[in-house]
Nucleic acid binder design. Sequence first.
RNA 1: GGAGGUGUCGCAUAGUGGCCUAGUGCGCCCGCCUGCUAAGCGGGUUGAGGUUAAUCCCUCUCGCGGGUUCAAAUCCCGCCACCUCCGCCA
Length: 424
Amino acid sequence: MIDLRILRNDPELGREAQRRRREPPELIDEILRADESRRASIATFEQLRGEQKTMGKKVAQAHGDDKAALLARTKELSVRVRRAEAAQTAAEQSFHDAMKLLPNLASPEAPAGGEDDYVVLEHVGEPRDFAAEGFEPLDHVELGKRLGAIDIERGAKVSGARFYYLTGPGADLELALVNMAMDQARGAGFTTMIPPALVKPLAMEGTGFLGQAAGDVYRLPEEDLYLVGTSEVPLAAYHCDEILDAATLPRRYVAFSPCYRKEAGSYGKDTRGIFRVHWFDKVEMFTYTTLEESFEEHQRLLGWEKEWFDKVELSYRVIDTAAGDLGLSAQRKFDCEAWIPTQGRYRELTSTSNCTEFQARRLNIRGRFEDGIRPLATLNGTLVSMARTIVAILETHQQADGSVRVPTALQPYLQGRTTLEPVR
RNA sequence: GGAGGUGUCGCAUAGUGGCCUAGUGCGCCCGCCUGCUAAGCGGGUUGAGGUUAAUCCCUCUCGCGGGUUCAAAUCCCGCCACCUCCGCCA
């Protein structure tokens, strides 16, 4: 949800933001109309309600015929109050429904356009040149088999397509990555968290995942709960309906959680291996801060992500996502994409979004400042997403003999192992 | 899952249909007093919305949602959370 005053003062700003996202600009005018009728219905109700309260006091004091006459009038008034209240509720509902459809206003710095209109901000490291080294790289499916690290057949047998088991060194690798990520974040001052992966509709809705992304979300209709696609959801909802003391900001949390995604509409895409799966684990950073601070915090989150890539020794590039490819909540988003040798291209491993006040308004998260109470800003950033990082590490650090070199920084987290060796 | 209990302003509590415009204490903020501090004294202290240039003012907010009534913190129904006990369980 965005600040209504912005739209009232400058509707064209809102329409333009919609165009940059390739979303309908007419929504702005719908919202403004809904707001007008909402305010009119509030005025009507309040006027009648005030009258009813005044009359009620007179009734309490009157006796005999006076009282009977007053009662006749208040009975009639009561009906009108009830009708006005119903009209107000309906008008507020329509207004909120329209507001809920409106995505965050994209940053003026975010490139306009759709998925392919991103801007590359930088490249870090060189993609490894296997041809020069004289051998053909294996893909992660083959490597995973040889190392006894990934069991895709049994994942499919037990859970279906896009599921897998991490086994032996694969499981060890995930735990090592989790621990290294948690250590990094803890060192940077984050509070570690293990949040619930099942949440109520409020948390999903509040974080913006029931809009355009709803098709990608698993729902348990029996309990009316959702499986989260990222721990951003429980971390954002953690402080919903709270007023945080400004002195406690920024609040930084880092969470480990499973992530579940239907991957609807991705049929035929990335069908091989564990690059695109229905479940993976992730370590996610999340910050509550002020709107003014959020832009620098966004850069800091990006900085921690880059630090991570350096530690696992992957070459990558950073892209500035185009407005049309931002999630509903995001004002700006940077993705870090690692080079995947057997795909010959950069693929998204991590992502950091500045949601400004958008989620905080929906979830009613505010800060108490010297000059009053205001919504906070929320930001999120991946530190490590498991399946894809494991793909990148296995493929990038494989050696001609079929073993995989363990990045130096990761070795202490892998019982000192320097390589993962083939078992067959 | 079953039975019972509880949910009021930051905390603790009062309030069983109109005198609630929700009282009191603690905490907190401002001021007075005072070598300093404490105490004492006076005032303020939920949040949201409408209106406004801003204030004033008005409406909503007693876990949430319905209902009864001219009128609901108060009566009725449903839901949620927490506590106690029983059952089951990693």
